[in-house]
Simulated assay, not measured.
Amino acid sequence: MKSKSLAGGRKEKIFPVAALLLVSIILSGACTRNVYVPVLMPAPVDIGAHIQTVAVVDRTTPGEGAGSKQGESQSARQSSLHREASQKAVEGLVRTLEVSPKYTAVTRTAERLTTPAEKGSWPPPLSWTEIESLAERYDSDVVLVLETFDTDFMITDGGIMSASTGTPRSVSNAGDGSRSRDRGGSDLSGSRVRAGGMAGIKLGFRVYDPVNRSIADEFMFNHYARWEAQGNPLQMVVGGIIDHRMAVIDASYESGAIYGERISPLWITLERDFFTKGGRNTDFNTGVRRATVNDWEGARQAWNISADDPKRKTAGRSAYNLALMHEIDGDLDLALEWARYSYSDYRIRRARDYAQRLEVRIRERQIAGEQFR
């Protein structure tokens, strides 16, 4: 099968920005090089192709009906942390939505609605009258509400390390204000103290679609982030290094971003490779040099010629490389043809796995296309 006999396929025109992104290359081995290709992945949850504008609302302010445990026993410091952390979760969500090509406008509203529910529990859905009012006020297709939010932090481990050796040391303290010492009686004032902890975030979002008067998505989940620090002296750890506040804030931002990824098609990079050794074929080697400097069109022209080489390895590797060229160009159907040809006619085993990955990409492209209007 000659290279010129392969029919042209359909290019991935729905997301032309991919053609503008630089494809980077690094040396990966003796006969191949890695290529990182930008790919638009579909959202795990499709909230509707008609949804392009979003208004984000925080509904986690404790209300009068939230119960005494939440409203009365919570200290002012805890309330401040809860408020700051919930806002960070909203920020992480908004930033993720903003980088998705699906959404044309994401409005982070100043609305802070009260909730009648305990922290970590679902409140009743907002009324459609209120949702329609919010959607009209912010000119949005949907109203995305942070409905429930709770935080936790616990110390998981810690210890004191020798300043000279870095080895753990046991601690004792006389309790009379004297310096802490290890079991051998040595002063620990010059040692470094290590501590570890875990920040936990529990939150839930609802996506209200006022047009269809339906909840497009409702999801509650937990996110945990490990935290570690060390310092000197011990008082710094107790008073400052164990800053669980920052650990909770960072984990909150991450949790909001995680939900944003759930409902957003997003660009990622996939790792691919191409062959760099194809015998003494001049055209094959020319294609390698052109690909190395991101001259993909020039590389494709050269490999189209070397694909007719009488040596099976050279022809098969050229076909494999041409599959990659067409994937970079967005023509996944033609890329799949070349990958299958490389394996079926020349037994390039790497091409079999590549063809399977391309089949997955074609299905994902179709799904992503259905998530846009």
Rank of each mutant, 00 (worst) to 15 (best):
R245C: 00
A257D: 02
Y320S: 05
T314R: 06
K277F: 09
I328K: 02
A323E: 03
R317L: 01
K277W: 08
F284G: 13
E297H: 10
S342N: 07
L358T: 13
W296R: 11
W267V: 09
A257M: 11
I258L: 14
G298K: 10
A307K: 03
D309A: 13
T292K: 11
E254Y: 02
A335P: 09
Y354W: 13
R349C: 00
N321C: 12
Y341E: 00
I258M: 12
Y259Q: 09
I263M: 07
P265A: 03
A355V: 08
F275Y: 15
R357K: 08
W338T: 10
T286Q: 15
L266E: 06
G316W: 00
D308P: 01
L270K: 12
H326K: 07
R290V: 01
T292L: 15
R352F: 07
Y253G: 03
N281L: 10
E337A: 13
L270D: 04
L358A: 03
R262D: 01
L266W: 08
L324G: 11
V248Y: 01
E337V: 03
R280T: 12
S344M: 07
R312I: 06
A335N: 09
S342C: 05
R312F: 02
F275M: 12
I241N: 08
W296T: 11
A299Y: 04
F274P: 03
A302M: 08
P265Q: 01
A323F: 02
E327L: 13
D250Q: 14
Y341Q: 06
R350N: 05
D273P: 00
R347P: 00
L270A: 02
A299W: 02
